[in-house]
Simulated assay, not measured.
Amino acid sequence: MEKQAGQDQMVWKKWKGKLWLQLIGGKIRKFLLGMGENDGFVFKLVIYLLLIGIGFIYLYPVLFMLVNSFMSLDDLVNSMVKWIPTSIYTENYEKAIRVLDYRSTLMKTVLAAGTPALLQTVSCAIVGYGFARFDFPCKKILFVLMLATFVIPPQITMMPTYLLFKHYNLIGSLQTFIYPAIVGQGLKSTLFILIYYQFFRKMPVALEEAAELDGAGSLKIFYRLAIPMAGPAIIIVFLFSFVWYWNETYLAGMYFGNSLTILPLELQQFADSYSRMFPPGSPGSQINEAIKLAGTLLTIGPLLVVYFLLQRWFVEGIDRSGITGE
């Protein structure tokens, strides 16, 4: 009996050890792989590493510009100084502000980018709502023709558009950006119409029917019902439009001429403007990379501020409008 009890106890200890191993192994497996597809430590580690890597790729140029723009000439030529300057050198920004004539040029740039962006946001909303909520003759044909304007390279229509503006004496004024934006033919208008079209298609028909029963017409339904619901889409369209108009240098240089200038245009001729303002032989006449980087940051700085202010609504709008899958 004692021998049998000892054997049973040994068997029990073996089974107990196996149970503990299975329990610990299960916990480790659950911790590493998780119960579902995306809640394990390994999956999260891979995702975070990918996000950190992608974020670093995007942030590296900005961090590089920011750090080097505060370096003096001695720090730039010193191979021992990489990411931390010996002192904060703000004279680079002072010179860049003078060369860019920053305050005046910034106001002109905000006007040149904000006005057509605002008008384009309104006009594209009207067109997108019309395509999404109304049936009319040749609707599909017109929709395809609108899409064709997005496929056709802008270089093909650039010269006819320039000749048209020249015929009506619009060259050299902001009206060359304003008039196309009013009629829904501004920069990337087709994309913005598609964003509104996708958003308005998701509106419940019952809401429009209830508004019609209350006596509301199509126009009243649009600005009292559709527009308040399309807030996220409006944020997306305005932000994208503002950025594209801000960065558009080729059309701005061709249409505005010498009558109007914007920050990206001034940045393109930064070196020439600097040499005219600081002729050779004068104090501080030697331009360096730090001054150029300071001018670049001053040019893109307002865009970064606008994005950070609208970031929450921007992300919400992308999620609600569903444009990522289009």
Rank of each mutant, 00 (worst) to 15 (best):
F134H: 13
M159T: 10
S173K: 12
I152Y: 08
P153M: 13
M158K: 13
V144Q: 04
I126M: 14
W246L: 06
W244R: 03
G184A: 08
R224S: 15
I156Q: 09
A125E: 01
K139F: 07
Q185I: 02
L170Q: 11
F143R: 02
Q155R: 09
I141L: 14
M158R: 13
I193Q: 00
L191R: 04
F134P: 02
A252V: 09
T176P: 02
K220R: 15
Y179M: 12
F150V: 10
L142F: 14
K166D: 14
A252P: 01
T149H: 02
V127T: 09
P180H: 02
Y197P: 01
A210F: 10
L187Q: 02
L142C: 07
E212D: 10
L164I: 13
L145T: 05
A206I: 11
T176D: 02
T161H: 03
I227R: 01
Q185P: 00
H167K: 14
Q175K: 13
F131S: 01
K202Q: 14
L163Q: 12
S173T: 15
G253P: 01
I152C: 06
F136R: 12
G128H: 01
M229D: 04
T249Y: 09
F242N: 03
L145H: 04
I171A: 07
V237N: 03
Y179S: 04
L118D: 01
Y162E: 07
K139L: 07
M229W: 12
G184V: 05
G253A: 15
E209F: 09
I221D: 00
T249A: 10
M158V: 10
E248C: 06
Y129E: 06
A148H: 02
I234M: 14
F150M: 14
A226M: 13
L219C: 08
E208G: 07
V237I: 14
I156V: 15
R201A: 08
Q185L: 11
V237C: 12
G128T: 02
Q185G: 08
L194P: 00
P228I: 14
F192H: 05
C138T: 05
K139I: 06
M159H: 07
F165S: 06
F150L: 15
P204D: 11
I234S: 00
Y168T: 11
I193M: 08
A211M: 11
Y245G: 00
R224M: 13
L119W: 00
E248Y: 04
G172C: 10
T149G: 12
F134Y: 15
C138I: 06
K166G: 14
P154R: 09
I178M: 08
L174N: 14
Y168D: 08
D214R: 03
M203P: 01
T176A: 12
T249N: 07
W244D: 08
K188Q: 08
S173W: 05
I193P: 00
V183T: 12
W246H: 03
M146N: 11
V243Y: 03
V151Y: 08
R224K: 15
L213C: 10
I178R: 02
W244E: 09
A132M: 08
